[in-house]
Design a protein around this nucleic acid. Structure first.
Lengths: 125, 125
DNA sequence: CTTGCCTCTGACGTCAATGTCAGGTTTTAG
DNA sequence: CTAAAACCTGACATTGACGTCAGAGGCAAG
């Protein structure tokens, strides 16, 4: 498939796909005229890249980790493994932090709602 | 306290505090010479602002929600309540997404580690 | 008084992922 | 064949939360 179709199927912009290639996150075969061509496999790959981006990883970090994703059965450096561990731990901490923030929001909403309902009960008897 | 102390106690840069004020997230009393002064209360406030930033809220959104934080006992617009609900839901979804990503990383690490150990067992009998 | 540190305003720099535009080539549909 | 749509490269623009620097003033200690 060409770049437009991949973009639509993966739900990203064409521009982003070219950027990913520029960053070494994505490769493409080129037709004689120079157009990029992709296989179905790339759809998953792009969505996984997006997932890592959403998790706060940088292009550089993703570049370091993607080889492990491509061929999890080959030998990879312990450094890469350690890096994945670091990111996993960072994610865990971040998730806990977000959950705490969400709970804080919940608390605020609950008290605000209670106050509003109390007001309403007092003014419309 | 002055801005430097607040920055240190809240763990942010002086620059950030001035930026928060510029965005309407933080207020300060000014001495005759124009220096900003803060109370202990501002420490909590700044850390909470940081928390919201970390949760992906923008300055604009935080500006809309902070009045509810300041005085949860007063009446606030239903719009603000709805906004908080939206952000809460967005956070919930984001947390789930991150957890999924973390699990994916875990899976990759596990298989990579297993492969490595298998290799090692084969080469050092 | 002066030395050193803190603060002020204002403005420009940064970074990363993308948007956007220009000018040209390729592919597809009719 | 021709027009529309998709693609190419290359470059500049954008956004948000800051960093950083310049030039000037404030404030406690020796």
């Amino acid at each position: 498939m060409r770049i437009g179709e991949l973009a639509e199927r993966a739900g990203v912009s064409v521009r982003s796909l070219r950027y990913y290639e520029e960053q070494g996150l994505l490769t493409s075969t080129r037709s004689a005229s120079g157009q990029r061509h992709y296989t179905d496999y790339e759809v998953e790959r792009v969505t996984f890249i997006q997932r890592l981006y959403a998790a706060g990883l940088s292009s550089r970090t993703i570049t370091e980790l993607l080889p492990c994703v491509d061929s999890p059965s080959e030998e990879h450096s312990d450094a890469a493994l350690e890096r994945m561990g670091q990111e996993r731990d960072r994610l865990t901490a971040h998730i806990a932090d977000l959950a705490q923030t969400r709970d804080a929001l919940d608390g605020l909403m609950t008290s605000a709602r209670a106050y509003r309902d109390q007001l309403q009960a007092a003014t419309s008897p």
